[in-house]
Amino acid sequence: MNQPHLVYFADPMCSWCYGFAPVIEAIRAEFGHRLPIRLILGGLRPGTTTPMDDAAKTRTRAHWDHVHEASGQVFDYAFFERDGFVYDTEPACRAVVWARRQSSEAALGLLDRLHHAFYGENRDITAPPVLATIVSEAGFDPAAFAAHFTDDELVKETERDFQISQQTGVTGFPTLIAGNGRNSDYALLTAGFQVKQRIVPVLARWLDDQQGSAQEESAI
């Protein structure tokens, strides 16, 4: 991007990303097109094949409790009554990559909808038929989604996102970085959850600084 922008590393099945969703929404509302967001799907647990056992459920529930305390986001704990659930994040990530082909805004919107479906509504977003229903609810064409969801190119595009996360050194989600569009320098804004009262003012100052620097350069 040739303007100040953000790069957001997230996953539809990351509870801390769900907690961070209102912060992303606040950023979009505050800055709009002045500060576009590029979404990279992190791949929290892609390709998982082992069902969750009781120990995994206990660890996951503890994470959910912490996210609720920090963010106020609502969780449906009936999830933990599921038997044999396989926590494979790749299908949901792939669905968001498909939406991103239409626009960055579309991808962010679907990511938010998937967060609420999984955490707030206890819907199995690892299942393609469920994903197709949610895609339809979000205003997308479910037939187009179904026609392309298993395409090799979409699978590879999703894998490239995972590789970008690894190559960038991102080790957890959410991670948010800022770029000025004029060089390859990026600034880490947060690696992990932060409340909007901390993030939005920092971003406002950073954006003012970037715009001031750009004006100075244009005057030279």
Rank of each mutant, 00 (worst) to 15 (best):
T168Q: 15
A106M: 06
I220D: 11
V135H: 01
Q197N: 12
P129T: 02
R205C: 02
F173H: 06
D141T: 07
P12K: 03
F79C: 01
W98T: 00
T126A: 15
G192L: 07
M1Q: 11
Q215K: 13
Q210K: 12
N183S: 15
G72T: 09
T133R: 15
L41F: 01
E30P: 01
R61A: 14
A55C: 01
C17N: 07
A62F: 09
D53K: 07
A62K: 14
P91L: 12
D76E: 13
P128W: 05
A132N: 07
Q194E: 13
V96D: 12
F75V: 03
Y8A: 11
E153I: 05
R101E: 13
A219R: 14
A10V: 04
P12H: 05
N2K: 07
I40W: 00
A55Q: 12
I37G: 10
Y77K: 05
G192V: 08
T50G: 00
S213N: 14
R182N: 09
K196H: 09
I24C: 02
L189G: 09
K57M: 06
V67Q: 10
P174T: 09
G212Q: 15
F31G: 07
S218A: 15
T58A: 14
R198C: 03
V96F: 06
N122H: 12
P4A: 12
L41V: 00
K196M: 03
C17K: 08
N183L: 01
A144K: 11
R94V: 11
Q210N: 09
A92R: 00
S184A: 15
I24S: 10
P142N: 10
F9K: 04
I125T: 09
I24T: 15
D88Q: 06
M1F: 11
V200P: 00
G181H: 04
L154N: 02
A107V: 07
C14T: 00
G192E: 03
E217W: 06
S71Y: 09
V202S: 13
L35K: 10
A107L: 09
L108D: 05
L6T: 04
R123V: 00
Q102W: 05
